[in-house]
Design a protein around this nucleic acid. Structure first.
Length: 353
DNA sequence: AATTCGGGGAT
DNA sequence: ATCCCAGAATT
């Protein structure tokens, strides 16, 4: 199937790029072509809206203005700068990859597709985005916007939820992309998806490439892209334990190195599958080898992740005397806690103190 | 190929 | 409530 056989490619490129040059948003990572800034922005923008990223990007650049600064930073400080942005493996992989660039490539972000794609956290999209935006190479950068826009323009009715479908769009982009200005072409496709060719009720009357759009011609733009629905998410219920000793300090524990919210810190949690409300006091006495003074119920916290939901029953427990702590736990004051990266759900617990 | 990884804003 | 966002890594 040759999707691009009927489109006037030079005219399409000109219409798209002209629109992008005049209508693009002013964004901090568009100030220059610094590959490091482009890289950081692309990682932050994965599955994350522009408006959410802007303040994080500004703060991140203030703390880690270049490759060396990020390479030499404390990982906990990097996670703290990422706090609230989600998908925290992005931050750990980015720092790890930056350290690799400093060591292997003398602190120059490689412009070779193979070397770039081998870096941690740099997948097919991010590789193409860096190559085109920072290095002006005509490589495809296929994200959700591009698949939506092109599925409409070319009326491509494949399931964009399938990983393989991205290959279809990559080969289409290789045929369409401007050799003269691949950066504006790729960014223009994404900008168009964000501003005009939106998921619901696209602004076709304002679209600079409406004349090229098969879906608009056929009146089926609302039915595209095709995307299979995902499965329902599971729910998990925990007690979140705000344990305060007689000196006023709280127990905070670090989550494991892998998995959900890896290496972030939280108030101790115990699944309601392991202990019920009636035995909670005994459980705490045994686990922390301490005497309980008072138990108070705080406001429950519900937190929705992309693939599961947490229901947290928050208990404020005041204890007396010495506390037995595991290796991954610390006793710290309220102000000390704010220096550690916490998941948003536990920030909401913290706010209640 | 399917699942795991966060969080927020739009609808 | 549901969708989806400048996706990648893991299983």
């Amino acid at each position: 199937m040759n999707y691009t056989s009927t489109i006037n490619i030079p005219q399409f490129q000109e219409d798209l790029i002209t629109w992008f040059e005049s209508e693009q948003r002013i964004l901090p990572w568009r100030e220059n072509q610094d590959p490091y800034r482009v890289w950081v922005s692309e990682i932050m923008l994965q599955q994350t809206k522009v408006d959410t990223v802007i303040p994080y990007f500004q703060n991140f650049m203030k703390h880690f203005p270049n490759l060396e600064a990020l390479a030499n930073a404390d990982q906990q400080d990097v996670l703290k700068a990422w706090e609230g942005l989600g998908y925290y493996s992005r931050a750990r992989n980015l720092q790890s990859a930056v350290q690799e660039v400093v060591e292997l490539y003398d602190a120059d972000v490689p412009n070779d597709p193979k070397q770039l794609g081998d870096l941690k956290g740099v997948g097919p999209y991010t590789k193409g985005a860096i190559l085109s935006i920072a290095f002006d190479q005509p490589e495809p950068a296929v994200d959700g916007n591009v698949m939506r826009v092109l599925s409409r323009i070319l009326r491509i009715e494949e399931d964009i939820a399938k990983q393989k479908t991205r290959n279809t769009f990559e080969s289409v982009v290789r045929e369409l992309i401007s050799q003269d200005n691949p950066s504006a072409f790729n960014q223009g496709m994404m900008e168009l998806g964000a501003l005009i060719c939106t998921p619901k009720s696209p602004s076709c009357l304002l679209c600079p490439v409406q004349a090229h759009c098969v879906a608009y011609r056929d009146g089926v733009e609302q039915t595209l892209p095709i995307k299979k629905k995902k499965t329902k998410k599971s729910s998990h219920t925990y007690f979140a334990l705000v344990i305060q000793d007689d000196a006023g300090n709280f127990i905070i524990e670090q989550r494991p190195e892998q998995g959900l919210l890896a290496k972030l810190w939280q108030f101790p949690m115990v699944s309601t599958n392991e202990v019920d409300e009636n035995h909670l006091s005994v459980f705490i006495q045994e686990k922390y080898q301490t005497d309980i003074d008072t138990v108070e119920t705080l406001e429950p916290v519900k937190h929705v992740f992309s693939h599961l939901t947490w229901y947290l029953h928050v208990k404020m427990i005041k204890v007396r005397g010495k506390i037995s702590l595991n290796k991954n736990m610390k006793l710290m004051s309220k102000s000390e806690i704010s220096k550690y990266p916490l998941p948003v759900s536990h920030q909401n617990i913290y706010k209640q103190l």
